[in-house]
Design a protein around this nucleic acid. Structure first.
Lengths: 177, 177
DNA sequence: GTCTATAGTGGGATAGAC
DNA sequence: GTCTATCCCACTATAGAC
């Protein structure tokens, strides 16, 4: 990937976060880059390709954040560990809410993803739980619950007074061994 | 709401479910109704208005389904009750996946909703749990977990061999008292 | 690597006749 | 309640000059 490509990708990422996922278009990206729309095709073959590069980068960054927590915050208390993982999940999603939406809301064209990127984030979670098939169910349920919590928060579904931290507390308790 | 309006709304709902949320546009709706696009403005003041009518109807239908389960399937076993509620949640979302997406993926313009419709579905869940503030956290965590499970399933995020029912089993166990 | 020019499609919305 | 005509906008994408 050329330096110019990376520049444009990062510009696209900031476009998405600052103006919303719906503002993600070649026209808006070109405006931000001070070039014309057709010039972008010298760097990316299509919008879909660029989109899946951004999604892949999102997965890899997410995996990095989660793995960092798993490696550094290994406490004796399982509840503390789950709490740290949960906090990292929420913090990451709320730091990049629009790219999180891009990563999760629609089916993927997996052929366009950077190989291994999608699994990287999930592996961080699977690795925390045991590796038996039964624990895979547990890991997936925990993943889904965390995803549900952040996705409802991002789309503004909790009522104004809702104690979101309290709901996360229930989650942590439910998934501690 | 006139009979013609209801006809067009139902046509829009079937358009969304049969061709995907992305196909929801006035042009496509007009085609399905065999009229011209501008004619739709005699029935709805804007696309946003129509969209929020469909969302409101989705909330009310969801509430109806969940309440039906709560009223009829009241077993002595709490786990059975949660399981029935979970099954109803999943069945509803998978029966109307595209409208479920419309209902949950983006922030709402609540002024355009049918009053009370958004709370109706949530009230079905809150009512199942106790009504103390602590149990609200529990109800919201359960709601989020169920939402996460269906939303990941709809967007094709579980790997091909994943035991989705197994993950729901973990959910049911975790939220039984 | 950027440009201009252009094609083709689709979108939401309004005015005014019937 | 439907139509035609129209507007203006946005979008992805290609061809070819520089």
């Amino acid at each position: 990937m050329s330096a110019r490509q990376v520049e444009l990708i990062e510009l696209a990422e900031s476009l998405i976060e600052n103006f919303g996922l719906e503002a993600f278009s070649l026209g808006n990206l070109a405006k931000k880059a001070n070039i014309r729309t057709p010039s972008l095709y010298k760097h990316f073959s299509s919008l879909m390709e660029l989109e899946h590069i951004i999604i892949s980068r999102g997965f890899l960054r997410f995996a990095k954040d989660l793995n960092h927590v798993i490696e550094t915050a290994a406490s004796d208390s399982d509840e503390d560990n789950i709490a740290a993982l949960a906090a990292a999940y929420r913090a990451h999603a709320l730091a990049h809410p629009q790219i999180y939406r891009l990563m999760t809301e629609r089916p993927l064209d997996r052929a366009l993803l950077i190989p291994g990127s999608e699994l990287a984030a999930m592996d961080a979670l699977l690795q925390y739980f045991d590796e038996t098939p039964e624990q895979h169910d547990r890991a997936r349920a925990a993943w889904a619950a965390a995803h549900g919590l952040v996705s409802l928060e991002i789309s503004g579904r909790f009522p104004p007074g809702a104690n979101i931290a309290g709901a996360w507390g229930v989650f942590i308790e439910a998934f501690s061994r």
